[in-house]
Write a protein that binds this DNA or RNA. Structure first.
Lengths: 362, 362
DNA sequence: TGTTAGCACTCCAACACAATGAGTGCTAAC
DNA sequence: GTTAGCACTCATTGTGTTGGAGTGCTAACA
């Protein structure tokens, strides 16, 4: 059995109709819905074939057909191919400039959720590959130090910590010099235990203080692992818009998964993985294709974004399998673009290459 | 009609039974449940009285009775009075020391949610009344400054920002001195527009740079309003454990409210308000007593916590009206205590004054 | 050979209906 | 004041019953 043009048209019609209604679609509906002008009986024959081929199924005898994951997959692939269409202007995202990266990300998922009516997620950009730009140790009291690390991409990490013995200004100055000269320009990944013990040795008598300080820096790095990836979500309540997800047990599972975030992190990882294998652009996970068991009743559409300065992350839309894939993909593209623009302009200001108003991340 | 001891016992039995089962409770149940040894008929008479008095209602004829808000209220009040009992040791919270306040708060709500099986919330402590301890302006590049503000309670706020014109080290040094001498020791509330324009004037030629810097500080303050209060939640999925909240429409409403956080902020405000009016300890909002319309099917139990150093916030448990109030209150008390301990010990290191009493708790 | 009309069949969804039983209020007896 | 007994109410549950949407199959048609 092979797929001819007519079968494709019918399958498309079935899927499109099901996306709208969420109800199984019957042969009669299609017979009127399409411009094929075929009787329901003919459609029935074709549908029977499509079912045999695995693109659609009947939930039960004497019901219409609904798409299988395989069917959705074919449909989504075809969208991806003809993606040049839909140049229609989208009302742009209107992300307000904020000073804090975190706020900005929260704003983005929020807007995206309200615009798509789906649940949305965004991962905070990873900066493991970014270089240390500046380290500053400041003495607050004789036993309390403030450590500030500025990382490329204008990420600022600070840490206030207490010492077990007094420290004087001069020592702090020496440590500042030592740290900056040894660590500046290295990426967070470069800073490993060996290097740290090296520096500790070099610090000599103040090794224990240095140890504290370096542990702090180590913690900044530690905070940047996949396990405790920062992920923001929005629009969790939107799952109730889709009856197939809204029943108590499924909703509970989904809400937990969204709240826990560890499942979402798997999508971020998977997306990063695939992207590194050359697969670029928007990615779609349909049902069982999901890396997360709990989300097998959903589809997830993801994309990576790039703020520049090595700051990349993943943004995703979570919906029912019958989600409006085109809309989701369109919106994600729009977000990608907006994020690029936002930070494009910031970067210009960052280096004295152009004019602009102040704004930054930190 | 007045409330005698027997009526109280019966009402208590009804409520307790309803808390467990969530089902309307009938006279026969009570007749066996209590140690009063009364027949169901007698109980029926009393229940009829209790209904007339407004403590219980029948969802429909020929159903058992369920407590009204008024009934719950009486019950809760009686718990509060005899709170000395239940000295039974609770497995303590096991909050791991973390460096970041935010992480710690997230951990707390999480543990509390898993222990109570309710939805929980915690507001980040307000530090508007806290004094500026230390301000540091650092020149990263000729047009980029890093501003770090350390506030009492070891709150660190940083902000990286770009200037429209170059700045040299010397100027930065002067600004540092100016800012510290003028702002240190003031609370964030004290720093108003008048003061800021004063300082701008004083800065003379570098007024525009100072303006930028001060705007930054102003923003730290701005971030500390009720409108964008930081609130962390956990266990939103727990609402599905209670059928009376789990149906699609109610669940959606609740999930939204929890996600939006603005409603939760109202509880924080209300709790703060009441506490400032002398009402201390644990507070309980039953149904319509809630300041938030969307939560009238729930009960909310809140308490304020005090980390010392002026860092106070609110922690709350959200559940169905038939929640286990005793358990909720017990857990909140435990959390209060734990939070005090955690920061008590930190403060000990913090100031070399010795083992200070970390603020009292009921 | 592909398309269509017609028909028998299936099965979900909706509805009505009765049976069940938990629970009440009332009354009369203790 | 307490209790047993009884009639009554009503949500819930189960059981048909029906209607309709949809299918598969067959036979007729172009």
């Amino acid at each position: 059995m092979e797929m001819d043009g007519r079968k494709r048209k019918i399958l498309d019609a079935i899927i499109r109709n099901y996306l709208e209604t969420g109800e199984p679609v019957g042969s009669r509906t299609i017979s009127r819905y399409t411009d094929l002008h075929l009787s329901s009986a003919t459609i029935r024959n074709e549908m029977s074939d499509l079912e045999e081929m695995g693109y659609i199924v009947q939930p039960h005898t004497s019901a219409g057909r609904i798409p299988t994951d395989k069917g959705y997959r074919l449909y989504v692939n075809s969208i991806v191919e003809q993606k040049t269409q839909h140049a229609e202007a989208m009302n742009s995202l209107m992300i307000y400039r904020t000073t804090r990266l975190e706020e900005m990300l929260k704003q983005v998922v929020r807007i995206l959720a309200s615009q798509t009516q789906y649940t949305t997620m965004i991962s905070a950009p990873s900066y493991r590959g970014n270089k240390v730009k500046f380290i500053q140790l400041t003495r607050i009291t004789s036993r309390q130090l403030l450590n500030v690390v500025v990382i490329e991409g204008n990420i600022v990490k600070n840490h206030l910590f207490d010492l077990t013995e007094d420290i004087d200004e001069e020592t702090v100055g020496r440590l500042n010099f030592l740290l900056n000269s040894r660590l500046n320009g290295l990426t967070l990944m470069d800073i490993n235990l060996g290097l740290i013990s090296n520096i500790k040795e070099e610090a000599g008598v103040h090794a224990d203080v240095v140890s504290d300080v370096l542990d702090t820096i180590a913690e900044v790095i530690r905070a940047e692992t996949d396990e405790n990836m920062e992920i923001y979500t929005s629009g969790a309540n939107n799952i109730f818009r889709y009856p197939e997800l809204a029943d108590s047990s499924k909703a509970q599972l989904l809400i937990s998964t969204i709240e826990e975030k560890s499942g979402l992190a798997d999508f971020v990882k998977e997306t990063r993985e695939r992207e590194s294998q050359g697969e670029t652009g928007i990615q779609v996970y349909i049902g069982d294709e999901s890396p997360v068991e709990e989300m097998k009743d959903c589809s997830v559409v993801t994309a990576s974004y790039d703020l520049g300065d090595g700051l990349t992350g993943t943004i995703g839309i979570i919906g029912p399998k019958r989600m409006d894939y085109e809309k989701a993909m369109r919106n994600l593209k729009e977000v990608k673009k907006s994020l690029n623009n936002i930070f494009g302009s910031v970067r210009m200001e960052d280096e004295p290459t152009g004019p602009g108003d102040p704004g930054d991340v930190g």
